[in-house]
Amino acid sequence: MSGPKEPLTRESLEPVPIQVFDDHMVLRPPNRLKERSAKRARTDDGGDRTVISRAENALKLLSQEFDAWMTKELDRLEEARRTLASAPSDAAADRFYRSAHDLRGQAATFGFPIAGLIADGLCIVLERKSEISDPTPLIDFHVESIRAVVRQNVREPDDSIGLALVDRLAVMRERALPA
């Protein structure tokens, strides 16, 4: 891999003023990032809103791939679930949890906010599964629910059937988990 073009001289490589107190020190490294990158705004450059909307447009172009990505993430979740069921291990459990955790964070970006909410509930179950006598049905129900909302193309965050499913799963978790 080729290295960066600029010389590797960065702002940490210089003395840092330190105030010493009885139980702590305060260090104030010079703000070279600001010196290097900040400039006075012009009145005609559209401001930060232009910068943000340019990034939003770039993300919108990328979003053409989101459906395929969502399918891949969901396949990965189900594969991890199958692996954990057939050959339980800490590594398999960790893979399954990370897959659920990724969906929790990404589903809304991919256009499936309800699936993200269900994945959030799945993460809660996985984090507390030792407190549940038989967590398998509850886990499976969450995974199947995520698949269902994607299959049914439930994309609106206020979809009434989707939210009813989220509520139903929350009630099931409440019943299964001690307060």
Binding site: E14, P15, V20, D22
Partner: peptide, 12 residues
Amino acid sequence: QSETGIVADSGS
């Protein structure tokens, strides 16, 4: 606690 002095960081 209170400030006891200002020094330059020789380590950096």
